[in-house]
Measured scan of single mutants.
Amino acid sequence: ATNIVSKVKWYNSTKNFGFIEQDNGGKDVFVHKSAVDAAGLHSLEEGQDVIFDLEEKQGKAYAVNLRIK
Rank of each mutant, 00 (worst) to 15 (best):
A1M: 14
A1V: 12
T2P: 07
T2M: 12
T2V: 13
T2K: 14
T2W: 10
T2G: 07
T2E: 10
N3M: 07
N3V: 06
N3Q: 08
N3D: 12
N3P: 07
N3L: 06
I4N: 07
I4A: 06
V5I: 12
V5K: 12
V5R: 12
V5W: 11
V5Y: 11
V5S: 12
V5D: 06
V5F: 10
S6G: 15
S6D: 02
S6R: 06
S6T: 05
S6L: 05
K7I: 07
K7P: 02
K7W: 07
K7H: 11
K7R: 12
K7V: 09
V8W: 00
V8F: 00
V8K: 00
V8S: 01
V8A: 01
V8L: 03
K9Q: 03
K9S: 04
K9R: 10
W10G: 01
W10E: 01
W10R: 03
Y11H: 01
Y11R: 00
Y11F: 09
Y11V: 03
Y11A: 00
N12S: 14
N12A: 07
N12E: 06
N12M: 07
N12Y: 05
N12P: 02
N12H: 08
S13K: 14
S13Q: 11
S13A: 13
S13F: 10
S13H: 12
T14C: 14
T14Q: 13
T14Y: 12
K15A: 08
K15V: 08
K15D: 04
K15F: 11
N16R: 15
N16T: 07
N16F: 09
N16E: 09
N16G: 15
N16A: 12
N16M: 11
F17D: 01
F17Q: 02
F17R: 01
F17W: 07
F17T: 00
F17M: 05
F17V: 02
G18W: 04
G18L: 03
G18C: 03
F19Y: 06
F19E: 01
F19T: 01
F19K: 02
F19R: 02
F19N: 01
I20E: 02
I20K: 00
I20M: 08
I20H: 01
E21Q: 14
E21I: 15
E21D: 08
E21K: 14
E21Y: 15
Q22I: 11
Q22F: 15
Q22V: 13
Q22Y: 15
Q22H: 14
Q22S: 15
D23P: 15
D23S: 15
D23L: 15
D23G: 15
D23M: 15
D23A: 15
D23H: 14
N24D: 11
N24V: 10
N24M: 10
N24S: 11
G25R: 09
G25N: 11
G25T: 08
G25K: 09
G25W: 08
G26N: 10
G26K: 12
G26Q: 12
K27I: 09
K27R: 12
K27N: 10
K27H: 10
K27G: 10
K27W: 08
K27L: 09
D28Y: 05
D28K: 04
D28L: 07
D28G: 07
D28H: 06
D28F: 04
V29N: 02
V29K: 02
V29C: 03
F30Y: 07
F30C: 03
F30W: 04
F30K: 01
F30M: 04
V31K: 00
V31M: 04
V31F: 11
V31S: 00
H32W: 03
H32M: 05
H32Y: 05
H32D: 05
H32I: 03
H32P: 04
H32K: 03
H32L: 04
K33M: 06
K33S: 09
K33G: 10
S34M: 11
S34H: 09
S34W: 10
S34G: 08
S34F: 11
S34A: 08
A35K: 04
A35R: 04
A35H: 06
D37G: 08
D37N: 14
D37S: 13
D37C: 15
D37L: 15
D37V: 15
D37E: 14
A38E: 09
A38V: 08
A39S: 10
A39G: 06
A39F: 03
A39Q: 03
A39T: 06
A39Y: 03
G40C: 09
G40K: 08
G40Y: 06
G40L: 06
G40N: 09
L41E: 06
L41N: 03
L41H: 07
L41T: 05
H42I: 12
H42Q: 12
H42E: 12
H42Y: 12
H42K: 13
H42T: 13
S43D: 11
S43Q: 11
S43R: 12
S43G: 13
S43P: 08
S43M: 12
L44H: 01
L44M: 05
L44V: 04
L44Y: 00
E45M: 13
E45S: 13
E46P: 15
E46Q: 15
E46L: 11
E46Y: 11
G47R: 06
G47P: 01
Q48W: 13
Q48S: 08
Q48M: 13
Q48T: 09
Q48I: 09
Q48V: 09
Q48E: 09
D49P: 13
D49Y: 15
D49N: 11
D49W: 15
V50I: 14
I51Q: 08
I51K: 05
I51F: 07
I51G: 04
F52W: 09
F52D: 00
F52G: 01
F52R: 00
D53S: 04
D53K: 03
D53G: 02
D53Y: 04
D53V: 04
L54I: 15
L54D: 00
L54S: 03
L54V: 13
L54R: 08
L54A: 02
E55I: 14
E55D: 07
E55W: 13
E55V: 15
E55A: 12
E56G: 07
E56S: 11
E56H: 14
E56M: 14
K57P: 03
K57S: 12
K57Q: 10
K57D: 09
K57E: 08
K57H: 12
K57G: 08
Q58T: 08
Q58I: 07
Q58N: 14
Q58F: 14
Q58K: 12
G59A: 05
G59K: 06
G59H: 06
K60I: 08
K60D: 05
K60P: 04
A61Y: 15
A61G: 08
A61P: 07
A61R: 15
Y62L: 07
Y62G: 05
Y62P: 04
Y62W: 12
Y62N: 08
Y62D: 04
Y62A: 08
A63M: 02
A63Q: 03
A63H: 02
V64Y: 05
V64S: 07
V64A: 07
V64F: 05
V64R: 06
V64P: 03
N65V: 02
N65W: 01
N65T: 02
N65S: 04
N65P: 00
N65K: 06
L66K: 00
L66S: 00
L66T: 01
L66P: 01
L66D: 02
L66A: 01
L66I: 13
L66M: 03
L66R: 00
R67G: 04
R67H: 07
R67F: 05
R67Q: 09
I68E: 07
I68T: 11
I68R: 06
I68H: 06
I68C: 08
K69F: 14
K69M: 14
K69N: 12
K69E: 11
